[in-house]
Simulated assay, not measured.
Amino acid sequence: MLTIVGGMVVAFQTVNRLSNRDEVLVVTRDVVLGQPITEANVSTAMVGGDQTVAMLSGQDLPKVMGMRAAADLMSGTLLQRRMLTDQVTPSAEQQLVPIAVKPSRLPARGLRPGDRLFVMLRPENPAVPSVKEPVGIEAVVDHTKGPDNDGLMVVDVLVNRSDAPRLGPLAADGQVALALMPRRP
């Protein structure tokens, strides 16, 4: 008799768990930062619902088509709103400038897309007098990658179009330093 009652409890719990499943969006193929979301890389899946995780509902599939990945998305990841953007970078007023730096010259926590930087320009030219206040350009991290074969991290930064010609050559020669600025509230 105890075995029958125990079996009924297990069966009830199993059915109850299966009924608490929600249809959510899942990445089915790796999506690189900035790539559009398509039917080829996102689908729906049934998962056990947990109200503390902000997953996108399966009903949101038509809404996310054409949006872009705000970060690299790996296959099997449950999709969240913060992982998507409708912004394309660089915008018409911006240029993307890659800066290669040693990992030891980056914040220990790393850099994330959206982090604000002050890129200090330090031309190695003896004719340029030292200045008391650093000369620099404000930038926003678009993407990071590495370390590469040379042991360098590449930080792609977005800068105003007018600042790119000044930053580009100095970044290519390694004559910049990166300072992390506070996040905007």
Rank of each mutant, 00 (worst) to 15 (best):
L61G: 05
G110T: 07
V24D: 03
A171M: 07
P185F: 06
P129I: 11
A40K: 11
P126I: 14
D30T: 06
S162F: 13
N16L: 13
M67L: 12
G48L: 14
V135T: 11
R105G: 13
L121W: 05
N41T: 06
E93A: 12
R112E: 08
D173Q: 15
A70L: 00
G174Y: 02
E138K: 10
V27K: 01
D22G: 15
L178N: 05
P107Y: 05
V176Q: 04
D150C: 04
Q13L: 15
L170S: 08
V64D: 02
A164M: 09
K132P: 09
R21S: 14
S162R: 15
T144P: 01
V24P: 02
P98N: 07
L78V: 01
V47M: 02
V31H: 00
T44F: 05
K63I: 06
S19G: 13
L167V: 07
V176S: 05
K63P: 01
A100L: 05
D72G: 00
P165H: 10
I137T: 02
A100G: 10
T14K: 13
V15G: 14
G168R: 10
L61C: 03
P62M: 02
M181D: 08
R122G: 15
V9R: 10
R29C: 07
S19A: 14
R166N: 14
V101Q: 06
D72E: 01
F12M: 10
K102G: 09
V26N: 06
D86S: 11
A108D: 09
R166D: 11
L56C: 05
D60W: 00
K132I: 10
G7I: 06
A139L: 06
E133A: 14
S91Y: 01
V32Q: 10
D150E: 12
A92D: 11
L180G: 05
L158H: 03
D142V: 00
V27E: 01
N149H: 12
Q59D: 13
L180N: 02
T89L: 09
P147T: 04
R183C: 01
S91V: 03
T85C: 07
L180Q: 06
